[in-house]
Design a binder for these strands. Structure first.
Length: 451
RNA sequence: GUGGCUAUAGCUCAGUUGGAUAGAGCGCCAGAUUGUGGCUCUGGAGGUCAAGGGUUCGAGCCCCUUUAGCCACCCCA
């Protein structure tokens, strides 16, 4: 009888094999580099928070998706479902020693107990960056610049950052007397692209209790098309002299010109009045980034301004703006686009363990190569050379370094290029200087004198 | 969370109206080739047919439950 345990993972939770993990780490490295280049500092917070910290921050839906339980001490706790709410708590708690403005990035796992789909998991990773303690539109514009730079650095060219400002929508709703039903209205607006204007009107009248005329006014505004300038011009007369709407408009205008000045080409930034976002805490700028080739995968980098989030934890005014890069959604997109490399190991060089009596020499050579910045793997057993080369070939290593009795006797070794099959013989004299030089040159590592 | 579709070897998939030891391609391991990978040839390992229960003389196939994946709704990274 087989009473062994079935090896399996929970729905929406996944293992990451080396091939997947190498890309994940590469993207995280890229994100870190971009964040740091804009002056964002790293932080981390606990996976587990007191339930009261997390509840009611993102809306009814996120409350439902929250993983919650009692810990061994009977405390009600929850696993973070995003990195923004923990940031609000973190800022309220530490802003005194951090000072404002405070810019941080946070790359970490979050959990949501929702139903899974392609590119949607219950455990996934976000790369967040936020600026706390300023209402300046410059921070909003910089957020867009970072999003743009992130996508570019990861290797995307065809994508569009959709921006909007909730003040515009809220201003209109207030002037229409629909302020009380903002959440329902915004939710309906979000579906515009998917279900079309008629059904959006229908949903607004049914679920938000709007009149047909009110709903039509909202949809008219949200449907505006054309270039960014054209939309701005059309927007103004539709806002019914709402001061809030006016401010939103001004901020959008300022944002768009700042972003353009910052180097984002016009075709990658689009004013889209229908971008509302479901999270309750957004108050101003909102943004979503859609990959033009795989729009169905949804936004891969989104966020917005939340000027009241920390007020739940502190009296101090802590406005903030930020966005989140969805690592796992991005990977799903890259897979669809065939952008994932087949790399299965970080090793660049296989050092063949060939002569059983020479292990010490192999370790010494490997050490010298590593000190020169090369990732080297020594084959773990003195197997047949053919087998070792086959292993290196399959794992797609670039080079094999081969030294047996003959080479050692002559004070040299072979450097074999696994893609061409060509082999060079180099000297091991002077601390294997020629070997190091050759390997670095082939791998394009360059040294202090190199290009 | 609700609804629909799906689950056969590591991967992609065959498997007839329910019928005998469940197959193929690719991959993997070994040998041909004990100092040189990718090609070729030969041999081999690998499956409680997702799990559990039921109907039947007999279930990979039919029924129920569970789990997981995909799709839609919802929402979102």
């Amino acid at each position: 009888m087989d009473d062994r345990i079935l090896p399996r993972t929970l729905k929406g939770f996944r293992d990451y094999l080396p091939q997947a993990m190498l890309v994940r780490e590469q993207i995280m490295d890229t994100a870190r580099r971009v964040f740091r280049s804009f002056g964002f500092s790293p932080i981390d917070t606990p996976a587990l928070e007191y339930l009261e910290i997390l509840l009611g921050k993102g809306g009814a839906e996120t409350d439902k998706q929250l993983y919650r339980f009692q810990d061994h001490g009977g405390r009600d706790v929850g696993m973070r479902f995003d990195l923004t709410v923990p940031l609000a708590r973190f800022a309220a708690q530490h802003i005194g020693e951090l000072g404002t403005p405070f810019k941080r990035y946070h790359i970490a796992t979050v959990w949501r107990g929702e139903n899974t789909q392609a590119g949607r998991y219950r455990e996934f990773m976000q790369c967040d960056f936020d600026t706390i303690g300023t209402r300046s539109t410059a921070a909003d514009a910089e957020t867009v610049l970072v999003a743009h730079e992130l996508l570019r650095s990861i290797g995307f060219e065809r994508f569009t950052i959709h921006v909007n400002n909730r003040m515009v929508l809220n201003g209109l709703l207030a002037s229409l007397g629909l302020a009380e039903r903002t959440t329902e209205i915004l939710r309906a607006i979000d579906k515009l692209a998917k279900i079309g204007p008629d059904r959006v009107v229908e949903e607004m009248t049914q679920t938000a209790g709007a009149s047909h005329e009110q709903a039509s006014r909202v949809v008219q505004l949200v449907r505006l098309t054309g270039g960014n300038e054209a939309i701005l011009a059309q927007l103004r007369p539709l806002l019914g002299n709402s001061p809030l709407g006016e401010e939103g408009l001004e901020r959008l205008t300022e944002l768009l010109s700042a972003v353009r000045a910052g180097g984002v080409p016009d075709h990658r930034i689009k004013l889209d009045v229908s971008i509302a976002r479901g999270l309750d805490y957004y108050t101003g700028t909102v943004l979503e980034t859609i990959l033009d080739e795989v729009p169905d995968i949804g936004s891969v980098c989104s966020g917005g301004r939340y000027d009241n989030l920390a007020e739940l934890y502190t009296k101090q005014q802590l406005p903030g703006i930020g966005a989140s890069l969805g690592l796992d959604r991005l990977l799903a997109a890259m897979e669809k686009l065939g952008m994932l490399p087949e790399t299965q190991t970080p090793a660049q060089v296989l050092l063949a363990y060939f002569d059983p009596a020479r292990l010490g020499d192999y370790f010494q050579l490997a050490g010298a190569l590593r000190a020169a910045g090369v990732c080297v793997e020594v084959f773990p057993e003195p197997a047949k050379l053919g087998k070792q080369l086959q292993y290196a070939d399959r794992k797609k290593l670039r080079l094999a370094v081969i030294a047996g009795e003959r080479e050692f006797a002559a004070g040299e070794c072979q450097v074999k290029d696994l893609s061409t099959g060509e082999s060079l013989t180099v000297s091991l004299a002077d601390g294997a200087a020629e070997l190091l030089q050759t390997v670095k040159q082939i791998l394009g590592l360059g040294d202090a004198n190199g290009p």
